[in-house]
Structures are given as structure tokens and as C-alpha cells.
Amino acid sequence: MPIHEKALIRPENLLTHDKLVVDGVDVSGHWSTFIAPRVVTDYNERLQDEIAALPGGEFVHRCWQCGSCTNVCTVNAVNPDFNPRFWIYLIRMGMESELLRDKDIIWQCVSCNKCTDACPRQVVPEGVMKATARWLELKGHTPKSSSTHFDEEFSEQVIATGKIEEGRIIRNFFARTGQPLRQEWLVEMAKRIARRLPVKLGMVMGFAALVRPRTRGWAKARRAIEGHVAREETRRRAALGLASAAAAAPPSNDSARTG
């Protein structure tokens, strides 16, 4: 059986014996370091199809494991556990329980597109990371990441009015993620601008309520986009074997709040 590299050589799977004789041969010392035998039986053979059903994951099947994505990865340089090639391997093998070990960091992809640029097979690894993070949330393996909260706040504003207002996004994002807006560094930044430009302070930090920017004649586009998003969401949930969003969660309060 091929060695499933990281999965099998994790420290808890290494066996060593100070004194060991096998068939009359003394293999004491480092000769007696073995990898614990392991039989994997919990494959999820639908895993690749489920990831492929989510936006960005469409081309995961193309991967031939060259590792170019991990080699160029921005986040991998900061955190070596962030390993797109390995996760794509696990997805293709259906090794769901192994994938879940890293469930809390997969959302950290910063979408710099270095992997998508380097990939010789057009897997679009950046998209696969986003699809995998979404899969983890839809399946209930992780709570919504702060990144998802940000994406949702942003997208709801765009769909509602055609534009965004940065101050509003910052305020609502901190509220959604339960963080105080008075972060020491944000306050310091505000102070530095305020020294020169008191009016700009309100605009940048969003402490003042300004007229909300919106695109003229957006109503029809908004309805069309909302219809598309609802249909796609239903289709994706069905592909993952989940009940429709309406049945699973209370309806989004987006239109009431941002309309």
C-alpha cells in the first residue's frame, strides 16, 4: 500500500522499540522505527463530486499532484500546514476524515491566484479552496468563517444597491463577527487621519452615516440576481444532499435590513 505521506507519518503513527528482535534479527534502535499499519475504510466516494458542485471546485478532477500550487502558495509561506495540493489529493481520494483535520484553516486562502497561474492542469486551486471552505460550512463541519461573513455582507450590499459603502461594510462586518469596532489599531489609524483631515475620518471609518451610494435603475437587476442566486443555492444544496436553504435556516433578513 502506498504511503499516504502526511496521513501516515504523523507522530502518533510512528512506532519505536528500544529492544526488538524480529525472526532472530536484532533491530533495536532506529531500525525499529515503523509506521503503524492502518486500513482506511471511511472513504467518502462522493467527496470530489460534492466539491465539484460548488463554485470554484469544477476542475478538481484534473489534478495530477505536481504540487505547483503549494509551491507558490502565499499562505503556505506563512503557515506550512496550509497545503492545497494535499487537500486536493484528499478530496480526490475521498479521504474526508483526513481533510477534516485541517478544516479550520482552509478558509484562509487569500485569492492571490498564484496557484491558478502556476497550475499546468487548469485545476483553479484557488477556486477549489473556496469550494472546500464552503463545503465545510454547508456540511456543518465548521461555523461560518469571518471571511464568509465578509463575503456575505459585501455581496448583500452589492445585490441590494449595485454598490458598496466601505464604512458600512466595516461596521456590519465587525457586528456580524461579534468584534468591537474600537480595535486599537483602527483607532490609531483614525487618529492619524484625523490629525490632518477630520472630515475624512467619518468617511473612512464609517462613524458618520453618509448618503448610501446606489446605482440608478438597479431594481430590475437586483431581482434578476436574487432569482439566480436562490436557484443556484437550491441546486448546490441538493448536490450535497442537503435540504433547501429555506427549510434549513430562517430566511435571510437581507432585504429587510439593507433594502
Partner: peptide, 22 residues
């Protein structure tokens, strides 16, 4: 005239084709 947001880096994570439309 009457331009709208391009979708930035966020809308594609909700739905890539909405971003293409925007």
C-alpha cells in the same frame, strides 16, 4: 454612467456568474 460594483473579491465566493454579470 450608472455604473455598479464589479463584484470585487467577494461576490465570486457567493456566486461566480453573478460576478461575471456585474
Amino acid at each position: 454612467p450608472d455604473w455598479n460594483c464589479c463584484g470585487a473579491m467577494e461576490v465570486k465566493n457567493i456566486d461566480p456568474k453573478v460576478q461575471t454579470y456585474l
